[in-house]
C-alpha cells in the first residue's frame, strides 16, 4: 500500500491563460461566478453561465476526465437534492402521480436546475484549485484579506500557517509511509482485527509520527528565527502579486456577466 499514490491538492501544472491569471483575480471571479449561479433563474441565464464555464475549462486545458472524476463524492448529494426537488415542488402541470408522490413540470425543472447549479458550482471551484498552486492561493487570500489587518486580524500569520501546513502534508505522508514499513518489518499488523485492535495497532505509528512532527516544527521555528523572521511587519515578498491587463479584462467580464445574469434572472429568463 503506497500512501504516496494519493493525490493531494489537485493542482495541475500548466501555462494557460487561466494559470497565468493573478490568484486574486481568480478568487474574485469564482466568487462572482458563484453569486451569479444563485441569481440565475432559467435556461437563458444558466446557459450563459454554462458557456462561460465551458470556455474557461477549454482555455485551462484541464482534462475533462479529472474534472468529472472530482464530482464523484457529491453524487449522493446530487441524487438526494434532485429527488427532493422532483417530488416536493408544488405546481400546476402534473406529469405523474403515483400514490403520495406527485411529479410536476415545475418539479422537473427545479430538480434539473438545482443539479445544474451544484455541478457548475463544483466545477467552477475545482477549476480554481486545478489552475492555482496552493501557495499562490494562500498568497492571494492573504492579499485580499489585507484590509482586515486594520481590525487586528492576524492575516499574515494565518496565511503563513496555512502555507506551512500545505508544505508539510507531503512530508508527513512520506514519514507515515516510512514508519508504517518499519513497524510492519517488526511484525506490526495494520490491516486485520476488529476496531479496537486496529486502533491499538495505530499506536506504534502515531507516537513516532507525532514526535517527528513536533521535532520538525521545532527545527522549522529555529530555522525561521535564524533568518530573522518576526512576523509580517515590514516583510517583503519574493512573488509580488500584480494585476495585469488580462486580470482587469477578466474581472470586467465577470462583473458584466454577473449583472447580466442578475437582470435576466429577475426578468424570469
Amino acid at each position: 500500500m503506497a500512501l504516496k499514490d494519493i493525490t493531494l491538492g489537485q493542482y495541475f501544472p500548466g501555462n494557460s491563460l487561466l494559470h497565468q491569471l493573478d490568484p486574486r483575480t481568480k478568487l474574485i471571479a469564482v466568487t462572482l461566478y458563484i453569486v451569479s449561479l444563485f441569481l440565475a433563474y432559467r435556461f437563458v441565464t444558466y446557459g450563459l453561465l454554462f458557456l462561460l464555464l465551458a470556455l474557461a475549462v477549454r482555455i485551462s486545458r484541464v482534462p475533462l476526465k479529472s474534472l468529472v472524476g472530482g464530482m464523484k463524492p457529491v453524487v449522493f448529494i446530487l441524487v438526494f437534492t434532485a429527488l427532493i426537488n422532483l417530488f416536493y415542488t408544488p405546481g400546476e402541470t402534473v406529469l405523474l402521480k403515483v400514490w403520495v408522490l406527485t411529479v410536476t413540470l415545475e418539479g422537473v425543472l427545479s430538480a434539473f436546475f438545482m443539479v445544474a447549479r451544484i455541478l457548475m458550482l463544483i466545477a467552477g471551484t475545482f477549476l480554481l484549485t486545478y489552475t492555482t498552486s496552493p501557495i499562490l492561493l494562500t498568497d492571494g487570500m492573504e492579499s485580499l484579506l489585507g484590509p482586515l489587518k486594520a481590525v487586528h486580524v492576524p492575516v499574515h500569520e494565518l496565511s503563513m500557517m496555512m502555507s506551512i501546513a500545505l508544505r508539510f502534508i507531503p512530508t508527513l505522508i512520506e514519514e507515515t509511509d516510512k514508519i508504517m514499513s518499519a513497524q510492519r518489518a517488526r511484525g506490526a499488523d495494520f490491516e486485520s482485527g476488529g476496531l479496537i485492535r486496529r486502533a491499538k495497532a495505530m499506536v506504534p505509528l502515531l507516537v513516532p509520527l507525532f514526535i517527528s512532527a513536533f521535532r520538525r516544527a521545532d527545527e522549522l521555528a529555529v530555522a525561521m528565527e535564524c533568518r530573522c523572521y518576526h512576523g509580517g511587519e515590514g516583510r517583503t515578498r519574493m512573488r509580488r502579486l500584480q494585476y495585469q491587463g488580462r486580470d482587469w479584462m477578466v474581472l470586467g467580464l465577470m462583473a458584466v456577466v454577473t449583472v447580466l445574469v442578475g437582470v435576466l434572472g429577475r426578468m424570469g429568463w
Binding site: 516510512k178 514508519i179 514499513s181 518499519a182 513497524q183 518489518a185 499506536v203 506504534p204 507516537v207 513516532p208 514526535i211 517527528s212
Partner: peptide, 12 residues
C-alpha cells in the same frame, strides 16, 4: 529482519 534508515525515529 530489516533495519530502516534512521531507525531511531520508529521508537514508540
Amino acid at each position: 529482519g530489516l533495519v530502516f534508515q534512521y531507525p531511531e525515529y520508529q521508537l514508540f
